[in-house]
Design a protein around this nucleic acid. Structure first.
Lengths: 304, 304
DNA sequence: ACCTGAACACCGTTCAAGT
DNA sequence: ACCTGAACACCGTTCAAGT
């Protein structure tokens, strides 16, 4: 792989350590990095995110990003801390949240914990098991209120809880095809709520599981796009030519090609500022449509 | 990675080449491989699939799998064939279809085409571009009839066409988060049909795009499970204790744990032969529900 | 008991050298 | 022009050796 963004981060890191970029100096902006290294804005943004994560640079609110004053000490805990499976999995989640699932390597986790790669293998059978544990941890995050909810409200709550988890961990919806069977304790908790909402309606178990799968699929099918959306937002400063730089170039090529008349018509029919791809809104629209369409007895639309 | 199934395949290959397993000999069954190598049935099935793909073993209908009589010659074309981008991409698709996306490495493609890895890089900028091209090729497969269809029928046709493509290429729904912008010509073709079905209803462009995304998400959100389903089916011979071996063990642990009462109740409420996870049926149920729930004007339910 | 260092077998990608 | 071979910088995983 050797991701380009890691290479860029390494180069910028070198400049900082060499003093080429002193504390307080402005770090090249996303746009400048993208131009100088001839990469997409999203890639540049990712490289800068790595440095931010490392504490080498800081975002000055209402201003540029600058080199951090004191190289904030490595986020390692003072003194040797017991190496545990839990700590390893947490570190994996932290890396994935910040840099994506691709950055989660056994070696990276080990380095951030200050141990040898082999030591990690002592607590986790392999990379797959690490990722499995990460998924379980993340799915376990949602909490459900003990209060009483209508069936419809309960179904909506489950879907929204999962959606929020995916918002926090955009890498999560992408790892369905794990090598192991998928039953995660963390995921079953959500299923419990879902099935409870469907209980007592006289539905066959098969029908209940079908509905469960359909709701999961709706959330997950949309959530896989969160990662791209996040990248796109990170890549765009405040300016509005953002869209043009990344998606826009290829898009407009399609529009002018004339081979996709309906696409062209729809795109040009949008307002001047384009389509802000509002995933939250699409999610909610689809959820309501799906639940309406399923016509489950006594599932009146909630007021939320 | 160093997948276990590749290691198993290598060991079986060694036995065949060494003569330990002679042509016509029965190859160890999925179940036997799983036991001997202490891996899941799915892993064993994958290893055997590799050998089948290589032509080293053949499935005898209504009988066991045996070592192939003559080591069928490598599927390379006779004589050197011009190395083209198209040929490279096709080979990538062939590998992904047979062994999954993880098996698609530049080196593997190069080896199967009988060239050096560096030669591949001459036609394809990197692995990402290869995968991008594979996706575009696969999405380009569906054909639409020129005939006249109702709006509803057209939407259903698009969804089903995508579903069939995912059935043929189970790796495809998993690669949303490509590093590049997602507009694939092959994918836009489907969008054209979809938008056409929504044209002339007075819908705002934003609404049309929202509906498009929701239908895509439904298909894709379910299609990511096809790969697992395929593996599960490959892993199960004819016998019925298949399910118990793979998913079942963990599942029944959950059931007996008592921590998931709704899950337990639903699972035990299923018929004796369990739930046959019929993705095609779930897909169709969800599609109808979604289209119904969207309440788009003049979208009467089709008879299909 | 737990971790390290080194090794092995893989990657993607680059580049001078060959044809 | 096109491909090769070798190299480089990364992986995951294993294992004898250390503490």
């Amino acid at each position: 792989m050797e991701s380009p963004y890691l290479r860029i981060a390494a180069e910028l890191r070198r400049r900082i350590h060499s003093g080429e970029l002193a504390p307080g100096d402005k770090v090249p902006s996303t746009r400048v990095v993208a131009r100088d290294f001839t990469v997409a804005l999203a890639t540049a943004a990712r490289a800068l995110a790595v440095l931010k994560e490392e504490g080498l640079v800081e975002a000055r609110p209402r201003s540029a990003t600058v080199v951090a004053a004191t190289r904030s000490r490595p986020r390692r805990r003072a003194g040797p801390v017991e190496l545990t499976r839990e700590g390893i999995v947490r570190e994996g989640v932290a890396i994935a949240d910040a840099e994506g699932l691709g950055a989660v390597t056994i070696r990276a986790v080990a380095a951030r914990l200050g141990v040898a790669a082999a030591a990690v293998h002592r607590h986790v059978r392999g990379r797959d098991e690490l990722v499995f544990g990460m998924a379980d941890l993340a799915y376990g995050e949602g909490r459900y209120p003990a209060g009483t909810l209508s069936r419809r409200e309960r179904l909506e709550t489950v879907a929204r809880t999962l959606w929020q988890i995916y918002r926090r961990h955009p890498w999560l919806p992408n790892l369905t095809p794990l090598d192991r069977p998928l039953p995660l304790p963390g995921l079953l908790r959500h299923g419990e709520q879902l099935l409870r909402a469907l209980d007592g309606l006289g539905l066959a178990p098969e029908a209940m599981l079908t509905i469960e799968v359909l709701i999961y699929a709706h959330v997950q099918g949309l959530a896989v796009h969160i990662e791209r959306e996040t990248q796109a937002m990170a890549a765009t400063g405040l300016s509005s030519d953002q869209w043009l730089d990344t998606q826009g170039r290829t898009m407009s090529a399609f529009v002018t090609s004339g081979r996709y008349p309906m696409f062209t018509k729809t795109i040009t029919g949008l307002g001047a500022e384009g389509y802000d791809f509002d995933l939250d809104n699409i999610f909610e629209t689809g959820l309501q449509a799906l639940l309406d369409g399923l016509r489950i007895e006594s599932l009146s639309r909630s007021t939320s």
